[in-house]
């Protein structure tokens, strides 16, 4: 039985004048997913998130959250959703703790213990009583996540959550998202252009390009379908290319005498033997795995993996 869909967009479209920021976008985020919304800057990720949280209205199409149209029941639905849209901004003259207390108050709760818990969870327990104006970008990002956690939401929508974080902060954020997902069953929709992060954090992903959906699937399936990438350094190059063509091995790129070729790991040995038989001098043959980055670049360039 397939998992419950907590967020579904149906033919979602947003136009600003003649410009279509999002066009005919249909996504499906299932309960328990850490769903990555990938795209270049200006691909329509933030516009999609704004429509999902009803900050802006779509030109056409609709967003269903927990099976209900967000237009019809926004207030009740938003009680079950935590969101951080774009760079989180807080009242700089208030402390982090007061900001959270006031924001939690808007949801009708005055649970100070929950505020302390959220601050602790994002690693800001020691700085909660400092004014936000003294916070670094990374700390504001953490506070943004803390405010999204306040109401114990079932779905958390995060727009570029690792923006401005240092490597340790990125690692902490990844662990935090993973922990909430595994331990509390929180579903995440995360927009990002950090492909490596999405690959490590998300189980499902959608790639949007110029407002349109290019592909939507499980990360593992996308990468398996993309085949494996091997690095080959051999001479002479003309002969290497001929052998590759004869065996049907696709050359993805070529740089300074090193080829990146797409073929299954089990075919590599046969190819190496064939290169040897053809008289090529093989200096290096490194098997590798396709990455989301390669898949993404191919998809957004309209290459062979574009859906």
């Amino acid at each position: 039985m397939s998992a419950e869909v907590v967020l579904r967009t149906e033919a979602l479209t947003k136009r600003f004048g003649a410009f279509a920021a999002v066009e005919d976008l249909s996504l499906e985020v299932r309960r328990g997913d850490v769903f990555g919304l990938l795209g270049l800057n200006g691909a329509g990720k933030t516009t999609t998130i704004r429509m999902a949280t009803r900050l802006i209205a779509p030109t056409s199409g609709r967003v269903l959250l927990f099976g209900e149209d967000v237009r019809d029941n926004r207030l009740e639905i938003l009680n079950r959703v935590g969101a951080m849209v774009e760079i989180p901004q807080f009242y700089p003259y208030l402390t982090g703790r007061t900001n959270l207390e006031l924001l939690l108050g808007l949801s009708g709760s005055r649970d100070r213990a929950r505020v302390a818990e959220c601050l602790d969870r994002v690693g800001l327990a020691g700085r909660g009583d400092d004014r936000v104006r003294t916070y670094s970008q990374g700390m504001r990002q953490r506070l943004g996540l803390a405010q999204a956690l306040l109401t114990r939401p079932e779905l958390i929508i995060l727009d570029e959550p690792t923006n401005g974080l240092d490597p340790q902060g990125i690692l902490d954020m990844r662990r935090l998202i993973g922990g909430l997902n595994r331990e509390e069953g929180v579903t995440f929709l995360i927009s990002s252009h950090l492909l490596h992060e999405v690959e490590l954090s998300c189980n499902r992903v959608a790639i949007v390009h110029r407002g349109r959906l290019k592909v939507q699937d499980e990360v593992s399936r996308l990468l398996a379908g993309a085949g494996s990438i091997a690095r080959v350094r051999a001479e002479p190059l003309d002969l290497v290319r001929k052998v590759a063509a004869a065996l049907g091995v696709a050359i993805e790129s070529e740089e300074a005498g090193t080829l990146r070729v797409r073929c299954e790991p089990e075919a590599l040995a046969a190819w190496a033997a064939e290169l040897h038989r053809a008289g090529c001098r093989l200096h290096e043959l490194t098997p590798g795995k396709a990455t989301l980055e390669e898949y993404f670049l191919a998809a957004t360039a309209g290459g062979p993996h574009a859906a």
Partner: peptide, 14 residues
């Protein structure tokens, strides 16, 4: 100016 609208309007308020 502070960019705080988004933080408020994603709460259950109109």
């Amino acid at each position: 100016a502070q960019g705080t609208w988004r933080m408020v309007l994603v709460r259950p308020v109109t």
